[in-house]
Design a protein around this nucleic acid. Structure first.
Lengths: 136, 136
DNA sequence: ATATCATTTCGTTAAGTAACGAATTGATAG
DNA sequence: CTATCAATTCGTTACTTAACGAAATGATAT
């Protein structure tokens, strides 16, 4: 029990994984979308996602060649829901998180196949204000 | 901001530090009492306490040669209160935490000076049920 | 079947961390 | 002022972990 708490807390105690959790608060995402926003090696992101899933914070769904992750919508492990609530309530104004959200908006403006194939280079060079408006 | 969250989460993501936090939910304790219950080197416990304090989870008070630590009663860092609440709500039934509480009761039955000087060997060999009754 | 693409797993490297004993600091007591 | 005692800091060792590129896996599409 103490050990599962430790697992979940450790999962949340990493900036890349926190960014993933905050991204997924907007709904499920494909691995390549997350990889594009975080700008990390695919292997690294995959490992983070696996760790978050082990902690009970994420669920997985396969659709063809693509794998989608989303926040767990039920208690997969004892402490996961509490931590998800805490994370959801926190970091709302963090600049890194805000930047990630903004970048995700641009990623969402491009067909998924292109994001998976080309990553960041699939994004338009000029993020016009017409596209990707802020949430506020 | 993301960084301070990480600091607090990391502080909580360690079994020894969790045990310390749960011990201190019963009120402030002297370092040597905590050391006796955890059965770790003084240096190790001191480092854990310093880390928890840096995270904003603990406050410190000096009284003569003894140093007392307690849970932070105000927001020393942005995310500390949320994590303290989460920890307080969790692990209530954990066997390690329960054992620690039981041992603390025996520690409290001995004068502080003896605990500081002798650690575990200051405890009675036979914890009679008359002393140290459980909280329930 | 073969090729291709997204993801995961493997193996390695560099950085971080928990533990300890030894040495230091800070504070009382003689 | 010296000794003593609690706590902290220092320096070391063993272990864990985040990151990457390369290789393996799983799933379409040709």
């Amino acid at each position: 029990m103490l050990e599962t708490f430790e697992t979940v807390a450790k999962a949340v105690a990493d900036p890349s994984r926190l960014r993933i959790l905050k991204l997924l608060e907007g709904g499920e995402l494909c691995v390549c979308q997350i990889t594009t926003v975080l700008d990390l090696a695919a292997a690294t992101v995959s490992k983070h996602l696996a760790l978050l899933k082990t902690a009970g914070l994420l669920q997985q769904r396969r659709e063809g060649k693509w794998v989608y992750y989303r926040l767990a919508d039920r208690a997969l492990t004892p402490h996961a829901p509490a931590f998800l609530s805490l994370v959801a309530a926190a970091l709302t104004g963090d600049p890194t998180i805000a930047a990630d959200r903004a970048l995700l908006a641009r990623v969402n403006a491009v067909p998924l196949a292109r994001i998976c194939a080309q990553g960041r280079s699939a994004l338009q060079d000029d993020p016009s204000p017409l596209c990707c408006g802020s949430a506020s």
